[in-house]
Design a protein around this nucleic acid. Structure first.
Lengths: 194, 194
DNA sequence: GTCTATACTTGGATAGAC
DNA sequence: GTCTATCCAAGTATAGAC
């Protein structure tokens, strides 16, 4: 299985194209032929970098999770208060959505999970677990320091916020004038902010 | 294009099977062969009832929307207060999710929308529009009668609730112990209920 | 209405030349 | 690393017998 560090320039272009396709049409919606057209290489050449479609799917999910994790760590260093940290978090989804109504890679793969290889599903679960842990920590600190207030536990609030943002992207896809993850997230966050 | 009234018993069994498959693996995740096995008929026989896969997809979305609409009207007649109406609404999603972690048909199709025929997408948009209008009406009545309270508009709250429930099903699929749409919905609704 | 048989296309994957 | 050529399976769809 290919890991992140070993990606050659060509492999990176392939993974980039595959990620966009996953966000646009899902794992079951694209083929090696689609990637071939996007990167200007033949199908056989793609197989040289990724032996199977599952390998490619796993790599896309791993990279996405890794990049997302970097963004989460950056928020912690650049934003100090829990309410603003959660708004910055919602902005990550907003940015993705504003890019041609792309879905979250793992949101899309999660929807398709019943037809995916276990190796891909494992990466998707890792993404959600990582996100839930991060949000929970932020909310817990906010509740403790008094910048947030709620009768619910931090973990329950975290699953609520994550569900809300993933759902806002999904529902927003089928609307002519969606509010988007940022504004939808604010509706919920405004009930938590002191 | 086949419409709801004309469905023969065989066509109904095929549409039922197709609906389950959409909820499990998505439109791009199933084939006529899968349906063939589920209903015990050959692929050619399925084509006799549905000329194309798009026809089948449209019928599935139409029927689902129609059944959902019946459930929404039933809530209005059997439940009188806005808070309880919204909880009953969340229970519709909970029931679907508890059935083997099935997704909402139109939630799944919405995720795949970029690869679907326009005729299918139109039905998906109709489903969301119908739901948003229903929720908006319920919330508007609740705000007017004083059973609900919020600084946000009914329409914004409706999109928030719908996004939350769709997202709770999607995210819940990849979790070992998801809270589920009902409990997730309650977290948000509790901030609205007076 | 259902079947067998089949046409046609696409998709994932491999062999081997360059 | 990339290519052409090819294999094989699966997927949508149709023709025609029963």
């Amino acid at each position: 299985m290919t890991t992140l560090q070993e990606l050659s320039p060509s492999a990176r272009r392939i993974a980039d194209a595959a990620q966009v396709l996953v966000q646009q049409v899902g794992y079951n919606g694209f083929s090696f032929e689609h990637i071939s057209k996007l990167v200007g290489m033949r199908k056989a050449s793609i197989h040289h970098h990724f032996a199977s479609k599952v390998d490619l799917g796993v790599t896309v999910a791993q990279r996405y999770t890794h990049q997302f994790n970097d963004a989460l760590r950056h928020i912690l260093t650049s934003v100090k208060l829990a309410p603003q940290r959660l708004q910055a978090y919602a902005d990550l989804f907003e940015t993705t959505f504003l890019n041609d109504h792309h879905l979250c890679v793992c949101g899309m793969l999660g929807a398709e999970s019943n037809s995916l290889d276990a190796a891909v599903n494992q990466e998707v679960r890792h993404f959600f677990q990582l996100n839930l842990a991060w949000i929970t920590d932020v909310i817990e600190e906010g509740l403790a320091s008094g910048s947030l207030k709620s009768p619910h536990s931090a973990l329950v609030l975290a699953e609520t916020l994550l569900s809300l943002l993933e759902g806002a992207m999904l529902v927003g896809r089928s609307m002519s004038a969606p509010l988007g993850p940022r504004r939808i997230g604010d509706v919920f966050l405004s009930s938590l902010i002191v």
